[in-house]
Design a protein around this nucleic acid. Sequence first.
DNA 1: AAAAACTGTAACAAATTTAATTACAATAAA
DNA 2: TTTATTGTAATTAAATTTGTTACAGTTTTT
Lengths: 135, 135
Amino acid sequence: MNGQFQIAMHILTLLDHADGELLSSEYIAGSININPALVRKEIRNLRKYGLIASKEGKAGGYSLDLPAPQIILSDVYKAVKHQPALGQAKNLPNPKCTVGRQITQHLNTLANEVDNSIFNKLSTITLADFSQQFK
Amino acid sequence: MNGQFQIAMHILTLLDHADGELLSSEYIAGSININPALVRKEIRNLRKYGLIASKEGKAGGYSLDLPAPQIILSDVYKAVKHQPALGQAKNLPNPKCTVGRQITQHLNTLANEVDNSIFNKLSTITLADFSQQFK
DNA sequence: AAAAACTGTAACAAATTTAATTACAATAAA
DNA sequence: TTTATTGTAATTAAATTTGTTACAGTTTTT
């Protein structure tokens, strides 16, 4: 995994604290300490998932698209997750071997079970829960 | 994450099926379809955690160091895991910002909780459970 | 003793992924 | 019309992961 989840949480927490006021990608980038273009790229994704609203043009910026108590961390995770948490090997096991022939399938099943347990855990926490720790 | 867990599980499953007979890194590599040196490198690690035994020299090779029912998948995970499942951002948040100042700590707490839920899930499954699916 | 078949380990190269940078068109407010 | 900002793409740089090669050390076999 990479740092997308952390970046996403940082952005969302800032927006929650802004309390409806629009924040610019430059301001957000200043808090996270990364490049503003990366912030915009990450937000493009979160917007696709209905978590963030944006306004273009002068005095534009970003805000939450849902009240913080309605943003469930499992949804944030889904938005940024592209791979199973257990990882994914890129080898192609030998189909002539009894184990090699079947292992991909069994490993995938296991990976899904693990992903589910992460979802379950994260579905018990809202952005509001997380964000209020800072106050 | 990378594919280390999958490679480790593949190796362990093969060794379980070998039923005490020693397997060479070349044979194992043939089933996984990767380089023998990589197999040995991965095994070096699993050996450190007491999961695999090795024998050097001609007619050498590898075997399980514990009966399969005593190899818990959470131990395999611990052996290969180097990073939290949620990932880890490499930015250094701005300490002048209320959120930036505290977020690393709160994200780490969350990451630990998630890691625990993975451990809990994997601690319910043994290598024997996994491996017997192939028979 | 010598040859053969292994493991153990290191050094290096290649490929892939992630993050950073730059640039600029499009939009909306002043 | 100027200014500040988002949206997006293209490119570069850095980091990580995977693959390769090589060879010393070990144990068995002849």
